[in-house]
Design a protein around this nucleic acid. Structure first.
Lengths: 165, 165
DNA sequence: CCTAACTTTCATTTATTTTTGAAAGTTTTG
DNA sequence: CAAAACTTTCAAAAATAAATGAAAGTTAGG
């Protein structure tokens, strides 16, 4: 089977729209659909990207917990493979983006919200209201994301079902 | 009160991380914290950006349903204001991004998943499995996002609470 | 129907992000 | 310990995305 270009393309576009670089997403897609581990060279060839690019993005994927190194005995090369369970993949992404982006945002909002304002004008009142609501919203989201990122597969399925009862 | 720079900064960074351009996010932040409508000129001055940039991004914000035009009698200028309820803001963003990015993705996955493969090898089997799981996952997410985007405020609060029981 | 007040467009410019690839670094092996 | 096999780094180049601003377009008022 030749690599399903289209799947890799779609995954890459998805990444681009959500602030993840295209090559990283494409490498992930490639490793997802290959049932065996690939070497740097093989990834370079399949996606037509440079060695440095593959190296950086594979390391990033490993840091996200989406990809792992694999060694083949009698071979000095490193091989890379992706975790294939898509629910775990989703959780990995949730956990990682939460940690990197949501948590700092949440903290910043809390801090802004904690600063008492001197004046009391329509402007400050509205500002406080917006910040307050945002604080509540992010607090709820925080709990929800934590739960979603740590539930087991059955748990997720159940929770998702609850949305439609 | 001078504009709370920090809030605008944070909102802008958030946008950047999630594929929304900085100026668009910053204009949104500015209009959120101002209890009254602002003209193009005022936005230009507060954020130090060009007329064209403000025009394009305000229109985009209107298309998202986050901002609305306001006319002041005896004035030919257009003024812009943001919807202030942060729960509605969140829903607006969910609805809009779902429509623009998730729905096409979902459709593409369904289509890829529907194509029967000729061969039957470990490669095709794994490919099918990944696509299948992705199909299920996006199907669940699809329902969830629709629901989340259309529930009223009480509904959301209740649903969010369910995650912690 | 003309002019002033305002809005929109879009070719260029500018800024940001991503990629490249050669050099430096590291590990393994004979 | 030398040299081969491989990985990592990073300055420079390329690609992409966003911003500018002057010109074109629109609308309201007289």
């Amino acid at each position: 089977m030749e690599i399903p270009e289209q799947f890799i393309q779609i995954w890459g576009t998805l990444g681009t729209n959500w602030g993840i670089n295209r090559t990283m997403a494409q490498i992930h897609a490639l490793l997802l659909i290959k049932p065996f581990a690939l070497s740097t060279e093989e990834i370079m060839e399949q996606l037509q990207v440079s060695r440095g690019n593959v190296n950086m993005n594979v390391r990033e994927l490993i840091a996200w917990g989406l990809v792992y190194r694999e060694l083949k005995s009698g071979d000095r090369k490193e091989y890379f493979s992706a975790h294939k369970d898509m629910w775990e993949v989703a959780q990995c992404i949730i956990r990682e983006r939460k940690k990197r982006e949501f948590d700092p945002l949440r903290k910043a909002i809390q801090e802004l919200n904690a600063v008492p304002l001197e004046e009391d004008t329509p402007e400050t009142q509205n500002y406080q209201k917006v910040l307050n609501e945002l604080d509540q919203l992010t607090q709820q989201l925080d709990k929800m994301l934590d739960k979603a990122g740590s539930m087991d597969k059955n748990g997720i399925t159940k929770k998702l079902l609850q949305w439609f009862i």
